[in-house]
Amino acid sequence: MGEDRFAGRRQRIIEKIREQNLDAAWITGLCNVRYLTGFTGSYGQLLLSRDEQIFVTDGRYREQSSLEVQGCQIHILQNTSFPLLLSEFICEKGWKQIGYEANHLTCESLDKQAALNDTTSWEPLAGWVENLRRVKDETEIRLLEDSSKIIDQVYPKLLEEIREGVTERQILQRLMCLLWDCGAKGPSFDPIILFGARTSLPHGQPSDCPLQKNSWVLIDFGADYCGYCSDCTRTFFLRGAGGAREREASSGHARLPGSPEPGSRRSRVRQSRCSGA
């Protein structure tokens, strides 16, 4: 993704700073920092003012930040802490009103910073970055599609491993390898692989439970590709006819009234689902 995209996103936050009559915005949510800078490390904070853009990280990411973060002043923490560094910036630049991400910054961190700068007013930002992230640009849409394509590659290969006697953990191990082989950074969440009666657990953890014939199989996983995530959930029955209740449940979706046809418009699909439910 080109730097102009990140710069454009930061500029929209700077416009909000001017509109809200703030001096600066303190961005601490790691996903939001990545969205505004492209930084993929595990620690980084962003300070945006009307005329400055400052990215702060520690010595582990000196080289990485120089490669990933463009258009910002990069400060590497050395022999100091972030609260002290921010306090210096506030005094040096005369910031009086600073917005902070209340849904990401802890109360303890805010209290520590406020104690260092007791004349500064701290204003919570109401989802500024999240509101930008809701609308995806063409590059983001492509990345989401690529993430979904990884699932399309992984799932058929994973099905080849489903057989009597295999354990949930063995399928999980194979799933992780397939995700990496197909280009994902990893799973977008902890995968759920469950067999038999354990499929009733909404977020059960894979165990050494072996798969038996006439058993339900639940597979729920997603792919993280360049920070964009997909999700796929499938429940099916392992060969054999199963009992009467299993046969009824597995075929129930085909008997819902008003089931939508392939290619139906979203409104028709939603209407069919509501009437079917």
Score class of each variant (00 low, 15 high):
233 T>W: 02
78 Q>N: 05
56 V>P: 04
3 E>R: 06
203 H>Y: 12
194 L>R: 15
246 E>M: 11
74 I>W: 05
4 D>K: 08
110 L>M: 03
99 G>R: 06
147 S>R: 00
36 L>Y: 01
133 R>S: 11
96 K>D: 08
243 G>T: 14
159 L>M: 13
150 I>R: 00
177 C>A: 12
207 S>G: 10
230 S>I: 04
52 E>P: 02
18 R>H: 06
132 L>R: 03
227 G>W: 07
19 E>W: 03
258 G>E: 15
131 N>Y: 09
11 Q>E: 04
83 P>Y: 10
113 Q>L: 15
100 Y>G: 06
56 V>L: 15
274 C>Q: 10
229 C>P: 02
152 D>N: 04
161 E>A: 11
244 A>C: 07
12 R>Y: 05
7 A>E: 05
237 F>T: 06
86 L>F: 14
216 W>S: 12
30 L>E: 01
114 A>R: 13
158 L>P: 02
20 Q>T: 03
124 P>V: 11
277 A>Q: 13
122 W>I: 07
221 F>P: 00
97 Q>S: 14
183 G>H: 09
103 N>R: 03
76 I>D: 02
9 R>D: 09
76 I>Q: 04
99 G>S: 03
245 R>Q: 10
142 R>S: 14
42 S>N: 11
41 G>R: 02
23 D>N: 08
203 H>A: 15
35 Y>G: 02
181 D>I: 00
66 S>E: 15
229 C>H: 10
23 D>V: 05
253 H>C: 14
121 S>F: 14
146 D>K: 06
44 G>M: 09
234 R>N: 13
55 F>P: 00
68 E>A: 01
128 W>S: 03
214 N>G: 14
81 S>C: 06
238 L>C: 13
251 S>A: 11
138 E>M: 10
3 E>L: 01
3 E>Q: 10
199 T>C: 15
213 K>C: 11
163 R>W: 07
265 R>Y: 10
96 K>R: 14
229 C>W: 00
1 M>E: 11
260 P>L: 08
161 E>S: 13
56 V>E: 04
200 S>T: 03
246 E>L: 09
18 R>C: 01
213 K>N: 12
